[in-house]
Every structure is written in C-alpha cells, then in structure tokens.
Computed example of a mutant assay.
Amino acid sequence: APATTIPLDIKNRIIKLYIDHYCDTNFTHFCEIIYDDFNVKISDTTLNKWLRDENIISPKARKKTRKILKDSLKAQLKMTRSKKSQNDIKEAISIIDSKNAHPRRPRCKYMGEMIQMDASSFEWIDGHIWHLHLAVDDATGEVVGAYFDTQETLNGYYNVFYQILTNYGIPAMFYTDRRTVFEYKKKNNAFDDDDTFTQFSYACHNLGVDIRTTSIAQAKGRIERMNQTFQSRLPVELRRAHITDIESANKFLKSYLKKFNDMFALHLNTTKSVFETQPSIEKINRTLAVLSPRKIDSGHSIRFQNRLYLPVTENGTSVYL
C-alpha cells in the first residue's frame, strides 16, 4: 500500500465515529473535527468515498446526489434475497430526503449597508429547543451578532443589536421578517402615518437605523442559509464543548463566532464599511431599553412587575404628587 494510505483500523474507527456520534455533521466539518481531536488529516473526498461504500451521504448533499444513491439502493434491493440486507437497504433509502435550496441574491457593496436578522428555532442540545437570534452582514457574510433565548423575543434581538453596536457601530439598515417585534399596524387605522413604533423600531429610529421587513423568506436568503449552516454545525460544537444550559451556550457563542467568521466570512480589502461611529455605552443602554408607561397611584407610587416603587429625589427624599 502507498505510504499515504490511512491504516484500515483508523479508517474503520473514523467511519464508526461518524455513524455513532456525528451523523448530522457535514463531511467538511467532520474532517476538521478529526484533525482537531486526533491529528489525522483526511479530505472530504476521501471521507465521502468511505461513507458512500456504507450507503451514507452528507446531510448537505444535493438533490441529484440523493437521487443517484437512492436509485443505486433500489437496484441493490431488487438483487438482494436476504431479509436482513433488504431491511438495511430500505432503512438507508428512508433517510435519503431531498431539500430545496434557497435562491441567491446579489450582495450589498459595503459592510454595514444591510444587516439581515432572524431567529431560528431548533433543538440545539438534546431535549432543549431554543431560539438562536442571528444577524449577518449582507456584503461580507460575517455573523455580527448571535444570542440564544427560550423564545423569539425583544430581549434576544436587543442582545444582538448590543453586540453590533459595541463591536462594529451603527448599521445603515436591518432586513428582517414581518414580526410584531419590528413593526405592527393597528386594525382599522385610518391614518397610515400614525406612530406605530415598537420598542425595537423606536430604538432604531433614535440611532438612525432603517428597518425593512418582508414575509418572503427567499428575499433574505443569506440569513436563511446561515440558519441552516448553524443548525448543521453548532449542535455538534455545543456537544463537543459539553454545553448543557443556555447561559453557557451564550458564553460559548462569543468565541465560536470569531472562529466561524475566520473560516467563512469574506474579508475583502475592497469592501468598505459604512458603520457609523459606535455610540457611548451609556447611550446604548438608554436606547436599548424597555419602555413601560406607568401611572402614579393614590399611594404616590408605581407598580412594575408586582413590585411597588416610590419616587425620590437625588438625595433620597420621598416625592409626593
């Protein structure tokens, strides 16, 4: 055998490792894991050949590839008489499923010109479905913010916005789906120009950030594909890091985003940034606030989240109105 041949026992261990623990991982990512964990360098082409012999294809395989393998398995099924072999082949056929790809759209010219934003509901670790709030720059494909929350919430998008403001600056525009977090219209509204700001859109208005919304997923294909990529890679990385709770997952994202962007984002010298200068932390905190109107009651206090608050002066003296 050639000197570069992978020993048979190592080959079998790699195949078993993929089947037992990483069957939801694409081949390129799995090759990176093998090199990081075991210092064994193999190409995704080699891994593809090994796993094809086991009737396994990448979860990111194209529809044509899935069809070719399915036709091959059906031919094998007709030639097989063993019940056990027939069941194995039928099981392999059942897990092959075609997926539709999102259409591409031209990239923006400048970094910060458009930030596509969305939340993805997924079982990121076993038994826990969280919503990953993501923001990606349309020009470079760089993930500029990410945050886990139990639901798609204002808190999640505020945390993503905070990461963008502190790490990059003020973007020109957000492109999002049509959720009430970003915009709403009152029923039977006689005037289209009435103030229908949500908390998030009001914060954007104060910073001069435009918001565009759409109900068509293909219109913001970059963030939709990014969600698919994260759903493919991130659960594996969380499992490798032994993450079991949402707080640890959000801490892990900080280091993971840097590694992810180094690998996949476009770093072109010709791509200029149109991010405005970062505001002060005090202004950011005052802008990304939840505004809750309250009335002072007859006891000269207000109620917020089942707690009473009494107005005082800077010296701590009670104020009675």
Rank of each mutant, 00 (worst) to 15 (best):
S94A: 14
R222F: 11
N285K: 11
R303Q: 10
H133A: 06
Y18A: 05
H133S: 12
L73D: 02
F230K: 02
S248E: 14
K259T: 14
T28V: 08
N159T: 02
Q163C: 06
V136D: 01
I19H: 12
N188L: 13
I42E: 03
N39K: 06
G169Q: 06
I223M: 06
N189A: 14
V290A: 06
A3D: 12
R105P: 03
Q305M: 15
T25L: 05
Y202F: 12
K295M: 10
S215L: 08
I281V: 09
V160D: 01
V144Y: 00
I243L: 05
A75Y: 07
K64W: 07
R81F: 02
Q228R: 15
E314T: 03
F161A: 02
T153L: 04
F148Y: 09
T28M: 07
T166S: 14
S280M: 04
F197Q: 05
S280C: 02
R222T: 14
K99N: 12
Y18K: 08
S72F: 11
E113P: 00
E113M: 04
T270G: 04
Q151F: 07
L268S: 15
A75E: 10
W130H: 15
K295H: 14
A146Y: 04
R286W: 09
E282H: 13
E113W: 02
D297N: 15
A289M: 07
T287Y: 05
L134N: 04
F182P: 01
F30S: 00
T46P: 01
I216M: 12
G112W: 00
I170W: 00
A92K: 10
N39D: 11
R240L: 15
T229S: 13
T213S: 12
T153I: 04
N87H: 13
A219R: 12
N26F: 13
F27P: 00
Y147F: 09
A217M: 05
K272Y: 13
D118T: 01
S215C: 06
M114H: 02
D71G: 10
Y35P: 08
V312T: 09
V312S: 08
D53W: 10
V181N: 11
A190R: 09
A203M: 10
Y256S: 11
H300Q: 12
C23S: 13
Y110T: 03
A61Y: 08
L51S: 01
E123R: 08
I281P: 01
T153C: 01
I281S: 06
Y256G: 09
Q218A: 07
D192V: 09
D44E: 12
A249E: 03
R222M: 08
N159K: 00
T5F: 12
I93P: 00
T150D: 15
T150N: 13
C204H: 03
Y162A: 07
D88L: 00
E183V: 04
T229W: 01
R212S: 08
Y158K: 03
S98H: 05
I302H: 14
D194E: 14
K70S: 12
E152P: 06
N269C: 10
T214N: 02
D149A: 05
D137M: 05
